[in-house]
Computed example of a mutant assay.
Amino acid sequence: MRLVILTQDDPFYLARNIDYLLKKLPPYAEVVATVVFDVSPFGKRESFKDKIKKTYDIFGLPFFLRYGFKFVSSKLDSRNNVRKVLADRGIPLIQIEGNINKDENLEKIRAYKPDLLVSIAGNQIFKRKLLDVATYGCINLHTALLPKYRGLMPSFWVLKNGESHTGVSVFFVDEGIDSGPILVQNKLEIGGMSQAALIDVTKKMGMDAILESIDKIHSGKYELIENDAAQMTYFTFPTRNDVKEFLAAGKRFY
């Protein structure tokens, strides 16, 4: 099975998790190429200066300093570099220009004859022409129990809303947002975890769920779980007031 991974250049969590995924891939699966988007933690493209200001304004000084230090130290550690992890394994990087759905970009991906596209923090909207490039379409990891908590930063929202459990969902991508039929869904008790701990745990769970999904697609033996739009909740990026309520409820970022 020929896989093309669609991801982003996140310096915090993705490199080591993608490395874990690559180590655990079954013999019949091969990552033949990758697309690495520019990082966009706020769900849209912004200048680095705007990202810094927005982080400070929304999350406050202690968070800003802690994650600023973590960002710099991660950039200095090659183990946190997505592109280097891929390069070390000899996996080609597909250079795209602008939106991935442009015909010229689709041709570049199509040249690798993918059986399956695997989106891990892919941060562009995927259109039907892209989804049809691969034989089995595209799967995506979402670190929440869909159809609840579609959208951005589910780890923040499940904590803020006092949920006792969360989890991970791997679904077939359609042209909506986190709306496709679910292939694998695994549940997790939150307990007293901070947001940082929850992200760590769910990212690792997510890699295992992707591996489980690849195996099911390869075997052809699976039953899809409905991603019921009537039960969905959707969340965008938090505001400063949301962060104040998060902290007032005794929740922790780290």
Rank of each mutant, 00 (worst) to 15 (best):
Y67M: 12
F63S: 06
F69D: 11
K160W: 03
K251Y: 08
Y112H: 12
L117M: 10
P114H: 08
L159H: 01
L159F: 10
F42V: 06
L117T: 06
G98D: 15
P114A: 09
D178K: 07
L198K: 03
N186Y: 01
Y13L: 10
L183N: 06
M193W: 02
V184L: 05
F42Y: 11
A87L: 13
L25R: 13
D77V: 13
V201Y: 06
S219Y: 00
D77E: 08
S169E: 04
L145D: 06
N80W: 12
E97Q: 14
L6P: 02
K108F: 09
L141C: 04
R79Q: 13
L146A: 06
F37Y: 11
L117I: 10
N105H: 10
I199G: 01
A134T: 00
L224V: 15
V118N: 00
L25S: 07
D77C: 09
K102G: 09
F42M: 09
I109H: 12
V85H: 10
F12W: 10
A29I: 04
G250C: 08
L86Y: 13
P62R: 13
L22G: 12
L247I: 15
R252N: 14
E212Y: 00
Y67D: 09
E245H: 11
V158T: 05
K203L: 07
H142P: 08
R128A: 14
V36P: 05
A111F: 12
D103S: 15
S164T: 15
I5V: 05
F37T: 02
D38T: 08
L21E: 12
S179G: 03
T239N: 02
K216G: 02
K70W: 08
P41G: 04
N123P: 00
R83G: 03
L116T: 05
G176D: 05
Y13K: 11
I109F: 09
E104S: 14
N227S: 10
G167K: 09
Y136N: 10
R66E: 11
N227W: 04
F235L: 06
K53R: 15
G43D: 07
I52W: 08
E212Q: 14
A229P: 07
G122F: 11
K187P: 03
L25A: 02
N123C: 03
G43Y: 04
D178Q: 08
L6V: 14
M193H: 03
K221P: 00
F237R: 02
F246H: 05
P11C: 05
L146W: 06
S169H: 02
L131C: 07
P11R: 08
V32W: 11
M205D: 02
Y222E: 09
R150H: 06
P154I: 07
D115K: 09
L25H: 12
E226H: 04
